[in-house]
Nucleic acid binder design. Sequence first.
DNA 1: TTTCCTGCAAATCGTTTGCATTAAA
DNA 2: TTTAATGCAAACGATTTGCAGGAAA
Lengths: 164, 164
Amino acid sequence: MASSVRSESAAPPLLDAFRRYLREHNLPVTSQRELVADVIFASTGHLSADDIERVLRARGAHVGKATVYRTLDLLAESGMITPRDFGEGFRRFERAPGRRHHEHLICMRCGKVVEFVNERLERMKALIAEEYGFRHHHHRLEIFGTCPECQQRDGVAPPPSGSR
Amino acid sequence: MASSVRSESAAPPLLDAFRRYLREHNLPVTSQRELVADVIFASTGHLSADDIERVLRARGAHVGKATVYRTLDLLAESGMITPRDFGEGFRRFERAPGRRHHEHLICMRCGKVVEFVNERLERMKALIAEEYGFRHHHHRLEIFGTCPECQQRDGVAPPPSGSR
DNA sequence: TTTCCTGCAAATCGTTTGCATTAAA
DNA sequence: TTTAATGCAAACGATTTGCAGGAAA
């Protein structure tokens, strides 16, 4: 009833890659794992474990929270998703492959998250690590502020060069 | 027995500022609040609530964990300390006043935290927020990697321009 | 079959809260 | 006195774990 993730037509490439990963590591390919992976691969956003459980329930599938977490661990270990911590007290997860490394702009009013890439910033961070003798592994940058919409809603004129 | 934080000689300026803050807000100046504030003001590091409780116990003072947390809230509201989230699953707190805004380099091996300031980075972040129409409030940058000492310990040659 | 999962509930861990007691103003 | 803080323990919310029953290989 609540199973078989798209058996017809070609399976989505990400899901296929996950299946391959599981097989290569001698881990069973279960319907729950496919369901969880499918939800996060189909989204471009930043989902919490709760979000994922909610989506699955809405689809009529029932996957226990423990299994959701266990599958997210697997997906993170495989490098196919990236955990994010926006300081909310819980983690969010986003699809990783095919996406460049990026940073986040977070609206403190409405919670909207905008992703951005800045080459100069990337280079600068590598240089800073080097300056202190550190071998750079990864980094995390989050800018918190108020998005244009919320500024307008609050009756505050948006900053001048608002290009978007 | 376990009380009175330096009644002799001039009280440390930060502690005095905290007392002033409390009075201005009609909040009682209690010995527990002074004890907790004293610990974090005396440290230049990044302390967890647990660290603080441990230091106090070592000093023979007994302050309940709830009170530690409540006092940390007050100190953060007053702007005298800054909460930090290094993705460890709990918060750390550091002394804020008299210190410029800075970022963190974190060693993934030994946990050492090195602080740094970079003007160009600061300006760039303001510009990026502006570019997306965001009103910049604050940001957070952490670079994770391996510190020079741990690189040597692991028998890996440190990067070329290792100035320190 | 053997092995590894899944689901559930109980356990953890950092943090918060309710409430009777106690201290500051 | 009046008001607010403290300490303890219970409550919380996200995440993890133990274990009996149930699918993958």
